[in-house]
Design a protein around this nucleic acid. Structure first.
Lengths: 327, 327
DNA sequence: CTGTTAGCGCGTTCAC
DNA sequence: GTGAACGCGCTAACAG
């Protein structure tokens, strides 16, 4: 691998001259620049990215940290982030938090391999985050709660979403609405549940214990929870699933028992994943404004990186997407 | 940010001692090690990733280059890559080739910011690839053709897949089969088309010009091509779409015209994307062995990195997934 | 065995 | 346009 030194030698100039010429500085004559460019080409010279990052103490790249590179993939969020990133000449890499403290994500965070990070991963500990957070290294966390001066939080309004879904069902005439929750430690699921309970209460309805079941945000979990619901004998008239994946699993369970949606039971999900549009029937759900969240995250990063001040907490609103799974 | 120097000072030892202690060298007494570790902790010391990469001239990370981080996302492929990567202690990052020569992907490739790369992006030029390829920097390209000694190719057997799909339709009794192609410059689409033509020919059937339509691998493109097909007046009895996205668009077009699948017309796709299972009716398609391709790619990289020799071309077989869109 | 010195790796940038 | 310091961590060689 040719280094800048080789180029300098070949072009017959100083190393610094090569650096200036290659980086488009004004102080180099057109003539010398050509010489340098030619030499670089002949040697197939490529600069070593680290060396330059090391010197600049800036990498110009932002990390998007996901719990698992292999999805479930938030393509809208990524789009939001990506558009802003490229518009401002930053680079974006995605890395996985799979593998705990050994994961790529943690390594990049700790070792300052990027200028800023957007974290959308529940499988990375708060400790790692607070530990890496510091002045001049903006970290944005999505949908989680981290107490730290240098961490900025963006949260989807899960409470409102839960409320909205339940309220919609109630307005449609449903009086007995079940809720299938996410995993026990999920902050999101908790808030959706609170929204559900509040809506029920405000409508003067009871959210009976036996109609709040436990799922885990997976299709399989939704399927199992729904089986249990069916086993209980009497069915509610509607089910609000904590997310779409579980709703899909649940619909599968109903289908197997010959329970029709929405004729026999109504179903609402949460997230509005791409699949939601393609289930039979298409799933009514609460859309998370992922694109907006992503774009906002990048905007905040740019502001911080530019030395500006921003708030440390943002909440983005959900939206009800009416399809055909509710009667 | 504390550096190794600060830690040395605080622990009252030399810089090299700190380095040895932190990297688990034998030559440091337990006592000193503790002192160093404590000092590092107190200062919240994190090593600077670049400095060490620079010295080692090795990053221990592999890049997965995608045409667009925001998908269409090959989650199975990623899984294949990811599993091997983590099993061997390498880091994996995904980056986008969106933005041409300015893209993150190109930068990482040229500037040697990773130890190896897997490229699954048609929007990156062959020139960039051959230009970056060199001894000791394994590059694997998926589903594309690059002439270079240092580039390893893995290709799905698109010809066989195209043949298989068409042959299946023929065996089901279809005599008039249309094909909707991908974009004009797509090598993949070309081979699928060749497979289609060969199957038709072998069965003694004509692949009439008007039944080979042009699409672009998008849902929208499939929709438009299908509209055109319908406009032509007489319908074939089956359509083989160059990929699933187009098939989904096409099914939409048929539905709008009241043409039933599979009663009135049969449909086969290609890829077996996740959605294929959820369309109405579920889509019969050709599955690409993405997981295997990803795992193979990583295995080859590890071998090359370990100094081994590998072939420069691999072909992986497709598989027909029968669902309900064919009569 | 412990710790130190010195120099490397490569590009950037300041002072001349 | 140039020389040299610098960024930061790693490691060989050497002294204690």
């Amino acid at each position: 691998m040719a280094t800048i030194k080789d180029v300098a030698k070949r072009a017959g100039v100083a190393i610094s001259t090569v650096s200036y010429a290659l980086n488009g500085s004004e102080k180099i004559s057109e003539n010398t620049r050509m010489k340098v460019l030619r030499a670089a080409k002949e040697l197939n010279y490529k600069k070593n990215g680290f060396a330059s990052d090391l010197k600049r103490t800036k990498t110009n790249t932002i990390a998007l940290i996901l719990s698992d590179l292999a999805g479930p993939y938030y393509s809208e969020l990524t789009t939001g982030v990506q558009e802003i990133t490229t518009a401002y000449g930053y680079d974006l890499i995605a890395c996985s938090a799979q593998g705990g403290p050994q994961s790529t994500a943690v390594k990049f965070l700790r070792e300052k391999r990027v200028d800023a990070a957007i974290i959308l991963a529940h499988n990375i500990s708060n400790e790692v985050i607070t530990d890496s957070a510091r002045e001049g290294f903006p970290i944005i966390v999505l949908d989680r709660h981290v107490e730290n001066d240098h961490v900025i939080q963006i949260e989807v309004d899960n409470f409102q979403g839960g409320f909205e879904a339940t309220d919609y069902l109630i307005k449609k005439g449903h009086k007995e609405v079940a809720f299938i929750s996410g995993p026990a430690n999920s902050h999101d699921s908790d808030l959706r549940l609170k929204g559900y309970i509040t809506a029920m209460k405000e409508a003067g309805l009871k959210s009976a214990q036996r109609w709040v079941l436990h799922g885990d945000f997976t299709r399989e979990g939704g399927y199992r929870a729904t089986k249990m619901l069916i086993l209980q004998g009497t069915l509610p008239s509607a089910v609000f699933y904590g997310n779409d994946e579980m709703a899909i699993g649940g619909m599968q369970a109903f289908k197997e028992k010959g329970i029709r949606i929405p004729e026999d039971i109504s179903v609402v999900g949460f997230d509005d994943i791409e699949l939601a549009e393609f289930t039979t029937p298409p799933l009514t759900t609460i859309k998370q404004p992922k694109y907006e969240a992503g774009a906002l995250a990048m905007h905040l990063i740019l502001q911080k990186l530019g030395g500006g001040e921003v708030n440390s907490y943002y909440k983005v609103a959900t939206e009800l997407i009416e399809r055909e799974s509710v009667k």
